[in-house]
């Protein structure tokens, strides 16, 4: 039984589609990284899992229970860290943890919990005086109360400094080792890279990639970014290059094109550009980092500059050929 399953999940707000026909499966016991740029629909998806928001269509099951009808039971078995959530300024950390204990019928020692998330000295202070990072730590601690079967963490490293984010990942690993399923969202690949078994990449409300970390790394090894500078970008060139087999993404920045492609497709890209009437002025090649792979899937940023000294072996022949055309 999957820990989380959405089938054809769609959520529209006033005509804007936040999530479109999302099919997502998170298996029991895995750490799943839910990636995507801000506004991709990650929080909306999480809101539906917790019945904060009702879907326009589709079915959603969490821990084998219906997300709408059995939400309370789901939340009894789940630890939730909402995105950038605020807490109660007039209550102390201890009062917060007591309230969570009481709400979840748990009996975790607040001091131990505070120790675990790194705020033992602040536990008897009012949360109004906490820094953003301390609030985030307390909210994270609250999510851990009662050893939940599932942890749903929405951008858990928000407000944390690098060492805080690192501690958070360690706790995620501990929770996973205990047997919990962890589902966490982030817009930064680096946050999930170290801890996730699998990732799903959401873009504009659609799942554009879903793979194991290993699968993504393999894809990374095979993929390279070919950056080409042309005198002009012919109209049909972009669509033609995108349509090539082995090309997974293409971004443009003026007359600079960056194609994410498999090894074998590089020459085809250049041929296609020339066939469309562009003349090649310069080009470079580099293997994609995981981060670039992520960007290739989500296409959120302009391509990197062409002058990076990363020309790889194997392109030289094509390079000479281009020289000849000048």
């Amino acid at each position: 039984m999957p820990a989380i399953e959405t089938i054809g999940l769609t959520k529209r707000y006033d005509g804007v589609t936040a999530v479109n026909e999302l099919d997502l499966v998170v298996e029991e016991g895995e750490v799943f990284g839910f990636l995507g740029p801000n506004g991709a629909g990650k929080s909306t998806t999480i809101d539906v899992l917790l019945d904060f928001t009702r879907p326009t269509s589709g079915t959603v099951t969490v821990l084998g229970e219906d997300a709408q009808r059995e939400s309370q039971s789901i939340r009894r078995r789940t630890g939730v860290l909402p995105e950038g959530c605020d807490l109660y300024d007039r209550l102390t950390g201890r009062q917060h943890l007591r309230f969570v204990n009481e709400s979840k019928d748990a009996d975790d020692d607040p001091d131990t919990m505070a120790e675990r998330v790194g705020i033992p000295e602040a536990i008897d202070r009012k949360v109004g005086g906490y820094s953003k990072g301390m609030k985030q730590r307390l909210a994270f601690g609250a999510a851990l109360v009662g050893e939940p079967e599932l942890l749903i963490l929405d951008e858990p490293s928000t407000g944390l400094d690098p060492s805080g984010a690192h501690e958070m990942r360690e706790i995620v690993q501990e929770e996973s080792a205990r047997g919990a399923t962890v589902f966490f969202s982030s817009h930064i690949l680096g946050q999930v890279e170290a801890v996730c078994d699998r990732v799903g990449i959401l873009h504009d409300g659609e799942l554009v990639a879903e793979d194991t970390m290993e699968g993504l790394r393999n894809a990374m090894d095979r993929e390279a970014v070919l950056t080409v500078e042309v005198n002009r970008v012919p109209e049909d060139a972009i669509a033609a290059v995108r349509a090539l087999p082995g090309v997974s993404g293409l971004t443009t920045d003026g007359t600079t094109l960056s194609a994410h492609c498999r090894d074998g497709a590089k020459a085809a890209v250049i041929n296609e550009l020339e066939a469309a009437g562009a003349s090649i002025e310069d080009f470079g090649l580099e293997t994609a980092s995981l981060e670039e792979l992520f960007l290739a899937y989500t296409g959120d940023r302009p391509s990197r500059p062409i002058d990076k000294p990363t020309v790889a072996a194997g392109i030289d022949a094509a390079g000479e050929r281009t020289e000849g055309h000048r």
């Binding site: 917790l50 309370q72 939730v80 807490l87 999510a143």
Partner: peptide, 14 residues
């Protein structure tokens, strides 16, 4: 508005 409602309703309260 502050978002603490999501904290509250993330707990098993209806």
């Amino acid at each position: 508005e502050s978002g603490s409602l999501k904290f509250l309703l993330g707990l098993p309260h209806t």
